[in-house]
């Protein structure tokens, strides 16, 4: 088994090494990827079209809005699938595992977490809202927010984190994020544009067409942040407790 597995590996390796001699020079500005009209358009026109300094955010939320929306849907579906796979509907008493001991959570750990969690949450809001001018955005902010809840679950136990963010609300928030994203798209459609054509939102926002795109991107990022926050926490909550949603790690 081990030796036969080397055959495809060696074959793929030979092909890829052979192909890598045809790749463009390292860091060549004239390489096909860098000189393509699409990416030069993104670099040259992002400032004019959307007034967003961070090109990655602009491409993510505006030019490739469809892609990001459906990626968010993929994250949502993965979270739903984990819930469906691990959900235990029987009300049996949980079997206590060997390494589980019921002791009070450590004082130093809990007090540190008490101090750190608000900072993480504020930082996640900053990352989300400041994604237009610095690295960051909905995905990173959402993951940070989810990580703060995971930190609570790690230092106390899962129940404590679930009183802050119950799993039912988790799913509602996740669905709300996608609804917010798609809702902005539908709204711009209702105002006469195409789906996710944010420029049409100038009719309801008191700003220019460019700034309408700028602000709509923020709304879209908030939607992504909602979904990612909820799904990341739901993933941890289900995986750490085998779907029983109780007990610590």
């Amino acid at each position: 088994m081990k030796n036969t597995s080397l055959i495809p590996v060696v074959l793929v390796g030979f092909l890829l090494f052979y192909a890598s001699t045809d790749f463009p020079e390292w860091g060549d500005p004239q390489s096909p990827a860098s000189s393509s009209p699409v990416s030069s358009h993104f670099i040259a026109k992002t400032g004019v079209d959307t007034e967003v300094p961070n090109m990655v955010t602009a491409v993510l939320a505006d030019y490739r809005g469809f892609d990001t929306m459906l990626e968010t849907v993929v994250v949502f579906i993965a979270g739903m699938a984990v819930l469906a796979i691990l959900r235990n509907f029987s009300r049996k008493k949980p079997v206590k595992r060997g390494h589980e001991v019921s002791v009070e959570p450590d004082l130093i750990v809990t007090n540190t977490v008490r101090l750190v969690v608000p900072v993480i949450q504020i930082f996640s809001f900053y990352v989300l809202a400041h994604g237009h001018v610095s690295p960051g955005g909905g995905f990173q902010g959402g993951v940070l927010m989810g990580a703060s809840f995971i930190l609570i679950a790690l230092s106390w136990d899962l129940e404590r984190a679930l009183t802050r963010f119950p799993i039912n609300r988790c799913m509602v928030v996740a669905a709300l994020g996608i609804l917010l994203y798609a809702g902005i798209g539908v709204l711009s459609m209702a105002l006469g544009g195409e789906f996710l054509d944010y420029a049409e939102l100038e009719k309801v926002l008191p700003v220019s067409r460019e700034m309408a795109r700028y602000h709509a991107m923020l709304g879209v990022e908030i939607g992504v942040g909602f979904t990612v926050t909820a799904i990341m926490f739901a993933l941890y909550a289900n995986l750490s407790s085998r779907g029983r949603l109780e007990g610590g790690l």
């Binding site: 960051g136 990173q140 993951v143 989810g146 990580a147 941890y236 995986l239 750490s240 790690l249």
Partner: peptide
């Protein structure tokens, strides 16, 4: 941006999720 995402997701969440499963 990719580095930021990898730092939060790859080094943070996926390690925690892996450890949670292995327990």
């Amino acid at each position: 941006d990719v580095a930021f995402t990898e730092a939060t997701v790859g080094a943070g969440i996926s390690t925690v999720v892996l450890v949670a499963t292995i327990f």
